[in-house]
Design a protein around this nucleic acid. Structure first.
Lengths: 122, 122
DNA sequence: CGGCATCCAGGGCGATACTG
DNA sequence: CAGTATCGCCCTGGATGCCG
């Protein structure tokens, strides 16, 4: 009984979804950042997905959302304590990924090549 | 310029996909394991997704697939050095998740409650 | 036994347009 | 500026059936 991995799986799925990491990475080095800034900083993300991603992070208590009811509205996002803890826990994985990305990429190339061309031919 | 996070994102998406972690966890404590065993050990996974997951892991050079051309066929899977390294890098995240799962779950409950019922009412 | 191919449903995600 | 709502595509992943 390897203890239940589902919660871990669920959480990692979320962490590993298309945008969460990128958002977390931007938050990492900023105390508080506005929606628009985040939007620009992340780059390539749609407004909708940024909203969804931030909502999920907020729901998990990983980021803190502060609304200033001014005109125009101003909303700032910041990492919570818990969020900072998660970042710390993610660091080894980041490091490992950075160090191994190239090798993995090579493996993929080799693997794909061997697939479509088992003999060397072509 | 927060360095390019895409490769990290890609990798984590894969690691965080529905099955990779569960498979890795089973492999963790086994030197070599047969497909069928893996299938039973993981539990709930379809044959197809187990195959797909293992192929991806193999493609990344994280697991080693050994085929014994006997009858009936016998195929064994084992963690590679690189795969073992990844596991190690994942440990802090596992630990963090285990330690925070309950709190996060609580946050989610509270968040959802506040959403549908901002006032306490109902 | 291992695993690929096919078919099909559900959900993730993007584009766009609209509100406070 | 921040966020919601709607629509629609595509990819993931499950079930089934066939091959070596």
């Amino acid at each position: 009984m390897p203890e239940d991995c589902r919660p871990i799986g669920n959480l990692l799925s979320r962490i590993g979804d298309k945008w969460t990491i990128l958002v977390m990475r931007v938050l990492e080095r900023n105390e508080a950042i506005r929606f628009k800034e985040l939007h620009r900083a992340v780059g390539g993300i749609s407004q909708r997905m940024l909203t969804v991603t931030l909502r999920n992070l907020e729901r998990d208590g990983l980021v803190i959302r502060t609304v200033y009811p001014t005109i125009p509205p101003r909303v700032e996002y910041a990492l919570s304590e818990r969020g900072a803890g998660l970042q710390e826990a993610m660091m080894p994985l980041f490091t490992w990924t950075r160090e191994n990305a190239k090798d993995i990429y090579q493996s993929q190339i080799a693997f794909d090549l061997a697939k479509e061309d088992p003999v060397t031919a072509r």
